[in-house]
Design a protein around this nucleic acid. Sequence first.
DNA 1: GCTGTGCAGTAACAAAAGTTACACAGTATA
DNA 2: TATACTGTGTAACTTTTGTTACTGCACAGC
Lengths: 209, 209
Amino acid sequence: MEQQLKESYGNTFESGLIDEIVHVASLVDFKEDDHLIEIGQYIRQMPLLLNGAIKIIREDRKEGEILLYFLEKGDTCAMTLACCLGETKSEIRAVAENRGTVAMIPIGKMEEWLGKYKSWRNFVFSSYNKRLSEMLSAIDNLAFMKMDERLLGYLKEKSKVNNSKIIANTHQEIAYELNTSRVVISRLLKALENDGIIKLNRNTIVLLK
Amino acid sequence: MEQQLKESYGNTFESGLIDEIVHVASLVDFKEDDHLIEIGQYIRQMPLLLNGAIKIIREDRKEGEILLYFLEKGDTCAMTLACCLGETKSEIRAVAENRGTVAMIPIGKMEEWLGKYKSWRNFVFSSYNKRLSEMLSAIDNLAFMKMDERLLGYLKEKSKVNNSKIIANTHQEIAYELNTSRVVISRLLKALENDGIIKLNRNTIVLLK
DNA sequence: GCTGTGCAGTAACAAAAGTTACACAGTATA
DNA sequence: TATACTGTGTAACTTTTGTTACTGCACAGC
């Protein structure tokens, strides 16, 4: 665990803090599509993502849902911080995009470290800032972009977090994450294929270029 | 100033902290439509809102803009926090919705207090949480609601922060804040009037009920 | 009074997105 | 192999939103 932690957080935390983390944290492996946090759930531990990617999803009361952003190595979820510190229920759902590992920190420690380690405090603040930034991007997408642009952005993002030009999703799955219908996605994907930007196969989409 | 601070923050901060704030803060009055923060600006002081309301606006590269949320008495802007702590440029614009006053805290003090006062730390975190929450609402609006619902929500919000059933805005101004066109707003407002929800006058809209 | 300007109402049309329905091709399974 | 199921393509249509254009009204300044 120490090695993994150093790899992801060695530049962020001083070694004394890394030692403490190694002592108190427990590792949790997850696999693709595992539901890590559900809406309404109380969070008692703070997750540090060591590897893999997690998608953060917002849900509407009535069936709707939308992908907010992805977490990657070195990230933590500010929503979770919010829950831990504010003792409120989660407002989002976290689902594993692929397999990976998180280190779980007991909530008591994370508060203790806020006073003790400046690097921890910086980390927590920069996580908040990064999350606010991601939320702003999500808002930009929704407010200023049409569905075709949003779709292309989504495909690129997916490709990035999975480190592959091949996106292994059905049109229906994509439609859920963009909160639209399968027919709309099929239509726009076909247009992207006609423009030579992607290649469509059954169950996969290949990002060309 | 001390009285105003106690009124807005007396429950939040211990009296020692209030005293410190009184010592180092400078008061700034603003009037309706003052631009308090511009996009791209560096922030060197942290504002505590004593009274009045401020709207936080996100802009697109090309003409578009959208209202994110309002700040009210007792709020601070987490975006500003982000800028102060991260030393980055502002990603949003802040415009006075009506007249009011802010207390400006030098950035050095706000960092010092993070270690010194638990109530300050709690305040800073809860500001972040509140802002994340508001951003989530903004996303909900954009992702899940149609323009007519968004418009009605906007009118109610306006009415609330100005503490008046009378909304003194032109259709064009509303269109800007919802990132749509004047004609669309006029159309939807007329529909709301026909449903007996509002009354339209020149330059003002009255929320009935 | 007349005139210019900004605001609101509305029609007519265009574009984007959502909906329904159905065909068909791979794939899995009995 | 026959059958069922899942994923995709596409047409036809509706709804929502955006655009252009023109009207008339209210108000300010002359």
